[in-house]
């Protein structure tokens, strides 16, 4: 009975992380994207904490803490401050319409389930579904990176992808902390790098749209501009 409850709660938390991935996909404003990301990170932290409790693996509390502090608080707040300071409140330019993106996201979830279920036939049901959900979060993160033109949303897509990885890592029993630490740090590094990028762009072009960045790449002649 207790196992069933553990399973249900863990499942609910994982699915809510996935839900926020979809929420990220249909946001049309940058602030909305950041809020959705913060909530997703919160859900990841909750999922990790629940796993720590149910697996009796205290080191997962550290993971939950890292997710909560860094991804749910520091990164969104820092990004918001950057956006405030740069004075960007623009709507997000999409490559594919939001509806199409959502449909693609549903397709990716279906693909993940098709892939993971036969492979992990003999492992525990929780691990199996957790892996499927984590894979769909990773793929939706990638999808977000390629269907949005704005640099901020690309960063967020990347970090949401990392959330999927963390979710996969905490779902498996006996995963050492080192992995989660490295994932958390890589997110931080990516945040710093992208942040540097923003300031560079801001100094010169007054926009965060990637299209302007590309036309000034060094290996490209002036006559090749899009």
């Amino acid at each position: 009975m207790l196992r069933g409850l553990h399973f249900d709660i863990a499942h609910t938390l994982s699915v809510s992380v996935l839900l926020f991935s979809f929420a990220l996909l249909y946001q049309r404003r940058i602030m909305g994207v950041l809020n959705a990301f913060a909530l997703q990170a919160l859900m990841v932290a909750a999922a990790a904490a629940w796993q720590a409790y149910s697996q009796e693996a205290p080191h997962l509390y550290a993971t939950a803490g890292i997710a909560l502090v860094l991804k749910a608080l520091v990164v969104p707040i820092a990004l918001k401050r950057i956006i405030m300071r740069l004075g960007i409140h623009r709507a997000i330019e999409t490559v594919i319409e939001v509806n199409g993106t959502l449909l693609a996201g549903v397709g990716l979830v279906a693909l993940s389930i098709l892939l993971v279920f036969p492979v992990a036939q003999d492992s525990a049901a929780l691990t199996r579904e957790n892996l499927a959900i984590a894979l769909s979060i990773v793929l939706i993160g990638l999808l977000m990176m390629i269907t949005r033109r704005n640099a901020v949303t690309q960063v967020v897509g990347f970090m949401s992808l990392e959330n999927g990885l963390v979710l996969a890592a905490v779902g498996v029993q006996g995963m050492p902390l080192v992995v989660e630490m490295s994932i958390a740090f890589s997110v931080l590094v990516a945040f710093i790098v992208f942040g540097m990028f923003f300031f560079r762009i801001r100094e010169r072009f007054d926009t965060l749209d990637l299209q302007y960045l590309e036309s000034f790449r060094g290996d490209r002649g002036q006559d090749h501009r899009p």
């Binding site: 793929l139 990638l142 999808l143 390629i146 490209r220």
Partner: peptide, 17 residues
């Protein structure tokens, strides 16, 4: 050689899918 970052990502994503 002259694609945008996003298009490179599209290639990777498509290959993965």
């Amino acid at each position: 050689q002259f694609l945008t970052i996003r298009r490179y990502l599209v290639f990777m994503f498509t290959a993965l899918i």
